[in-house]
Each structure stands twice: as C-alpha cells, then as structure tokens.
Design a binder for these strands. Structure first.
Length: 288
DNA sequence: TGCCCCCTGCAG
DNA sequence: CTGCAGGGGGCA
C-alpha cells in the first residue's frame, strides 16, 4: 500500500517512540511474515529508524537491522503500554484500528517500556527480514534500488537516460521501476504525471529534457505534500499510531475517476497502464 | 519488458 | 460472483 510518503510517515512516528528501547519479547503469528533468527532480536536496542524508498530499516545494536517492507497492506502500529486504542473522534479521516492484535496481525514485538509494536498485513505480501548490517549492501532489493527522489543522482540527465533506455515503455512504467527512482508507486505516479500534463501512456522515449525537468520537480513536490499530509489512506494505510493520513483529500486524479478535474472541470478517466489502474484528465494531460 | 501471480477482502 | 486493490518477483 504505502509509497514513499506513507513509509516516511510511519518512519517518523516510530522514530519518536522506538529509539533506545529494547525488544524483549513478542511473537510471529504468520511464519512467512518474518525471516531471520527470531531469538537474535531479543535484548536488541533500537538505535535508528531509517528508510530507503518504500522500505523501513530499523537499525538495532549488535550490528543488526530489521528490514520492513509493507508492500500493499502492511501496517506497523505502536501501542504504548496502557495505550488504549485511540478512538477517531468521530471524524472519518481519523478513524482507525480499534483492537490489537487483530486478525491481520502477523508479528508482534514487545518493547522494554511495555509497549508493543504490531506488524499487520491483510494480504501477507509484506515482510520483516532480520539481517546483519554486513548483509545490507548485498540484500537483493536494496542493492538494486535507485536513488531517493531528492538525491542529486535523480537528475534530468539520469531520468532522460532511463527514459531513452526504455523508450517504448510507458513513462508511468519507468517511474514505477524502483531501480530508476526509489519510492514512487501507483498513486504518486498518477499525481506527478497529472501535475506535469503528461499522459501516463506516453512512450518514455518521447519525453524531452524540457519536459523531464518539471516532471522531476512535480514528483518531488507531490511526495513532499504526501509527507506533509501524513500519507494517503485510500484503503488500509495507517501511520504508526494507527491513524489515517489526510493526503487522499489533496489528490487530483487518483481514485477520482468519474469525478470532475479540479483544474479544468472535465470528467476524469480511469484506464490501465503498466498493468495498473491509471487515472488521467483527458484534457490536462495530452494524449500519447 | 509486460503479464501472471502471491493473498485477502470488498465493491459492483 | 468477478474484478480489483498504495508492490514487486518470476516468467515468457
């Protein structure tokens, strides 16, 4: 589910509460959701909470790191000791998890404060992998991951090269490729392309550097906005407190097919590009 | 470089 | 009931 802004929101939430705490217990409720030596976690202290693309990196002492990939429906929810599950105050945008653990809880960590960290994952595509720090550079997914969107390496020239290399692929497919740039998913790809006036099905090779420059700016802008608004809660996403994000209200095209374009008023369409549901404005985005 | 698939649940 | 869902690995 979560793309970079959602994962970053979870990261910030966990960083506030997890640093310095030890893992003192817990349970794996679904075996395939955890890999590594479970007992190696016991007594480990959280020294940092990082992120690369859509992957969370929970750095532990004794040279270990827990790599958490939420995939489509993963959640990491921190519940303080005595933390009564927070009620949403009646507003739908902050409705949330009532009971933990629940039917989708796959892994639980018990922390030294008495708090618990719940890894929930309805579709079970996500996972927690406990690795030695020395294994991180060769971890297959991390090793291939492209630059962060704000990295200098994500430059006009580099994106132009990626587009030329896959010139017949759709521009959306290339943006979704985590080896090109890390962290963009279906929602933010659609949003960035809308804001750039580029149709997602445009062959990547057709884009000039003149078009790529503002595209990069819009990618960064929409991801920053996503973080600012605490991520998109279109379905399952909640932050580390179990609260929904507010970015869904800011979206221009994703999930708004059949509704009118916020900029020109025409009815938004949904199509399929790169195997994914794709949302476009037929007027604001020039046809490929 | 596109598609099917992993899996579960929900809307149409 | 079928089709689809914030991802991405493995297969033509």
């Amino acid at each position: 589910m979560p793309e970079l802004p959602e994962v970053e929101t979870v990261r910030r939430g966990l960083e506030r509460v997890l640093l310095g705490q030890q893992i003192v217990g817990g349970e794996v409720l679904l075996a395939r959701s955890f890999s590594g030596v479970w007992s190696d976690l016991m007594g480990r202290m959280v020294r940092e909470v990082g992120r690369r693309g859509k992957v969370l990196l929970i750095g532990l002492d004794q040279g270990k790191t827990a790599l958490v990939h939420l995939r489509m429906t993963g959640q990491l929810i921190y519940q303080p000791q005595d933390g009564s599950p927070r009620e949403g105050g009646g507003h739908p945008s902050v409705a949330l998890i009532r009971k933990l653990p629940n039917a989708h809880t796959r892994v639980i960590w018990e922390m030294s404060s008495g708090a618990r960290l719940f890894f929930n994952d309805q579709r079970t595509f996500g996972s927690i992998k406990l690795l030695e720090d020395t294994e991180l550079p060769t971890e297959p997914f991390l090793a291939k991951l492209g630059p962060e969107p704000w990295d200098k390496a994500f430059s006009i020239a580099a994106l132009h090269r990626a587009f030329q290399r896959r010139s017949r692929s759709s521009v959306k497919a290339v943006l979704l490729d985590q080896e090109v740039v890390a962290g963009i998913g279906n929602i933010y790809a659609d949003e960035a392309l809308f804001l750039s006036g580029i149709h997602p099905a445009t062959p990547a090779g057709a884009l000039s550097q003149t078009q790529i420059k503002p595209l990069i700016a819009k990618i960064r802008e929409v991801l920053e906005r996503g973080i600012e608004y605490g991520g998109v809660s279109a379905r399952d996403y909640v932050n580390a407190e179990g609260l929904r994000g507010r970015m869904q209200e800011q979206l221009y095209v994703y999930g708004r097919d059949g509704m009118s374009c916020k900029l020109c008023g025409i009815t938004l369409q949904k199509l399929r590009t790169a195997g994914r549901g794709t949302h476009v404005c037929p007027r604001c985005q020039s046809q490929p």
